[in-house]
Amino acid sequence: MNYSYIIIEDQQEPLKQLQKELENYPEFISKGTAGSVDRGIALTLTQKPNIIFLDVELGAGTGFEILKETARFFNEPPFVIVLSDHEKYARKAINYGVLFYLDKPINPVKLSLALHKFKKHFSELRSHISIKDKSAHWLIQYADILFIQSDGSYCHIIRLSGQKVTVTKPLKEIELLLSKTFLRVHKSYMINTAYIEKINTTHKIITLHFRTGLFEMTEKSKTRLDESFTIKDTVMEIPIGEIYLEKVKHALLTFKTL
Rank of each mutant, 00 (worst) to 15 (best):
L45A: 07
I199R: 00
K31T: 09
H128R: 15
I199T: 10
Q149N: 03
I145K: 03
F122C: 13
T234S: 07
L45F: 08
F53C: 07
F255S: 10
H250N: 12
L45P: 09
R184M: 03
L178V: 06
F53V: 11
L253F: 01
I106M: 01
L258P: 05
Y96M: 12
F122H: 11
E246T: 14
Y142I: 08
T33F: 09
S228T: 15
V37D: 01
D233A: 08
T193G: 04
K247Q: 05
G59M: 08
S4K: 09
K249W: 01
C155D: 04
L258S: 07
L111T: 02
L111Q: 02
I191A: 00
G40V: 06
T202I: 10
I205P: 00
P239L: 04
K198H: 06
N200F: 07
E69C: 12
T202E: 08
S150P: 01
S161T: 15
L160M: 05
K119M: 13
L54K: 05
E21K: 08
H156E: 13
M1W: 02
R211P: 02
T212I: 14
N50G: 13
I199C: 04
D133W: 10
G152C: 08
H137D: 11
K117F: 13
K180I: 05
D85G: 15
H116P: 06
D10Y: 09
I8D: 00
A71F: 14
F74P: 10
E65C: 10
Y154A: 01
T46R: 11
I157C: 07
Y101R: 05
Y195D: 06
K48I: 07
V165N: 08
F147C: 08
L115H: 02
L115T: 03
F122D: 13
F64T: 01
P239V: 04
S123N: 00
E197G: 06
S221Y: 01
A194I: 11
M236K: 14
I140T: 05
A143V: 11
I205D: 02
V37P: 03
P105K: 04
S153Y: 10
E23H: 06
E23T: 10
S221V: 05
K110V: 08
Y96W: 13
E219N: 13
Q141L: 04
K222T: 11
T234R: 03
K198D: 11
I191S: 04
P77H: 10
A251I: 04
H121V: 12
